[in-house]
Amino acid sequence: MGVPPARRTSGMWGKALLRLVFALALPAVLVALWWAASAGSTNVYWPPLRTVFGVFPDVWTGERLRGDVLPSVLRLAAGYTAAAVAGVALGTVIGSWRRVRALCEPVLEFLRAVPPPVLVPVIMLFAGIGDTMKIAVIASGCVWPVLLNTVEGVRAVDPVLAETARSYGITGVARLRDVVLRSASPQIFAGLRQALSIGIILMVISEMFAAGNGLGFTIVQFQRGFAIPDMWTGILLLGLLGFLLSVLFGLAERRVLGWYHGLRASGRRSP
């Protein structure tokens, strides 16, 4: 059979190790540079990295993780999920019908062009300054890349595949689930990835405007209180959070889009 054998396990660990070294080398160098460059710093706003690392465990105690990081992450999750569901649902509708698309496209392009942070004051007017406002801000910014990518993905379903599905009576929900959304999933994931970084930015910004807790709120509080090393730890933590979410996203994507990467790789081998 032409089914390729499973990748040989010998050498796999070596490769994984090498990849890990490659992944960690540059961050290590940058941290070392920062450490060295800031070592003798007496500038209040630019404290030695050693000091920042030193206060990190004191600042991000369990209580603070629960009281500030968790609410931020929950808001992000709620806003992001709402945007993903709405974006995929609306995108599927708009992508499926040419008429609807012609009607919606100019408006979508306009709305997408509005920078989402501008919406914070507007949404505050309607939704107050509570969690609803923050979730609404995150969702309103995240929805566009998901929506527009879904539209493109749904439009681009291969006509031969669509015809195959039709000839075998695959219609309605099955067509949507097994054909249209699966076929559009590479584009949908591209949109979801963009949306994730937008979501993190909006999570912080919405908390900087008006909040009683959260990562963005805490960082601003530190800055206003001239607790500069503490502020830097907040920025580092945000970076780590973003990195962690991106890794998790990558894992999910690998799982859902495994077929797509395999297909592309096979296309490169034999065009």
Binding site: L161, D178, R182, S183, W259, L263
Partner: peptide
């Protein structure tokens, strides 16, 4: 190549 579902 285009009539089989590549994700299945």
């Amino acid at each position: 190549g285009r009539s089989l579902f590549p994700w299945m």
